[in-house]
Computed example of a mutant assay.
Amino acid sequence: MTEELIRALLRDQHPDLAAFPLRHAATGWDNQLWRLGGDLAVRLPYATERASDLLVKEHRWLPSLASRLPLPVPTPVRLGVPSERFPKHWTVVSWVPGTPADRAPVTCADAAVALGAFLTALHREAPADALTNSDRGLPLATFTPALPTAPLRAIWADALAAPAWSGPPVWLHGDLHPANVVTTDGTLSGVLDFGELCGGDPATDLAAAWVLLPDASRLFTAYATDDATIRRARGWAVLSASRLVSIGEAGPPGGKPTWAVAGRAALARLQA
């Protein structure tokens, strides 16, 4: 991606934004992010075939959810459509300030209160036409992770044995790991990348208690739930942290070393 390409796309489809200052901000798993002016960003599919569809999904659902969420999120404000210049959908979203938590981890205890409030607001019953996800919000028995230690295998077995979610599917972020939240002064200041947004078991998101926070127990003071859901959440945390380690250790061009560090830290917390 180049600044010239993005300016041309803006001139073609959103000319009122085309003169704003523009600079590259980050390259994620699916998209590139370019800062646009003071309070906007452009997200463009970059590395995966699915990225365009995920941006369309965010544009469809996230604006209606964002108004009730107590932390800033990158709310889509414009949609770019495929063209001769660029054959995929792209979006303009609100800019969320902060540093990704894989580079500036959560250190403040009050982050658990912020995350609990965020998840309480998000985890409402999803509408009948909400999207499902083949990799999130499902029964844990769907997955067969290779776990290297006896404590992790015990946590996984206990999560599998926990009663299944019996309530309706609730809205899930689906991908609450350190690269998808930002921090300021050690506490949560925003939540990014809703590409995995779907309906399902809230335990999927509650894995963030171990994946994001230095003390998992504090989240469950701020977020009321039952013991079975906490047990399933521990299983989801094992799965999420293991994926972070695997991706982080993959090596270039796909590897993200800071993800491996975050994943190993989460696995250590789970086994403590």
Rank of each mutant, 00 (worst) to 15 (best):
A209R: 10
A209F: 12
A209G: 07
A209Y: 09
W210Y: 13
W210E: 03
W210L: 01
V211L: 04
V211D: 04
V211Q: 01
V211S: 01
V211W: 10
L212V: 10
L212I: 05
L212W: 07
L212G: 11
L213H: 06
L213P: 10
L213D: 08
P214Q: 04
P214R: 09
P214A: 02
P214K: 07
P214C: 07
P214W: 06
P214N: 01
D215A: 14
D215P: 03
D215E: 15
D215Y: 04
A216S: 13
A216I: 07
A216P: 15
A216M: 03
A216E: 00
S217W: 02
S217D: 15
S217Q: 15
R218N: 01
L219P: 03
L219H: 13
L219E: 02
F220A: 09
F220Y: 14
T221P: 00
T221D: 14
T221G: 13
T221R: 14
T221A: 14
T221F: 07
A222W: 10
A222N: 08
A222S: 15
A222E: 14
A222G: 10
A222I: 11
Y223M: 00
A224R: 15
A224G: 12
A224M: 08
A224S: 15
T225K: 05
T225H: 08
T225R: 02
T225Q: 07
D226E: 15
D227W: 00
D227K: 09
D227R: 13
D227I: 06
A228D: 11
A228K: 12
T229P: 07
T229N: 04
T229I: 12
T229L: 09
T229C: 14
T229D: 07
T229W: 05
I230M: 13
I230D: 12
R231W: 01
R231H: 13
R232G: 14
R232E: 13
R232S: 13
A233P: 06
R234G: 03
R234L: 11
G235F: 06
G235H: 08
W236A: 03
W236N: 06
A237N: 05
A237Y: 03
A237S: 12
A237T: 10
V238H: 03
V238G: 09
V238C: 06
V238L: 02
L239A: 08
L239M: 06
L239N: 04
S240I: 06
S240H: 14
S240W: 06
S240F: 05
S240K: 14
S240Y: 01
A241F: 02
A241T: 07
A241Q: 01
A241E: 01
S242Y: 03
S242A: 04
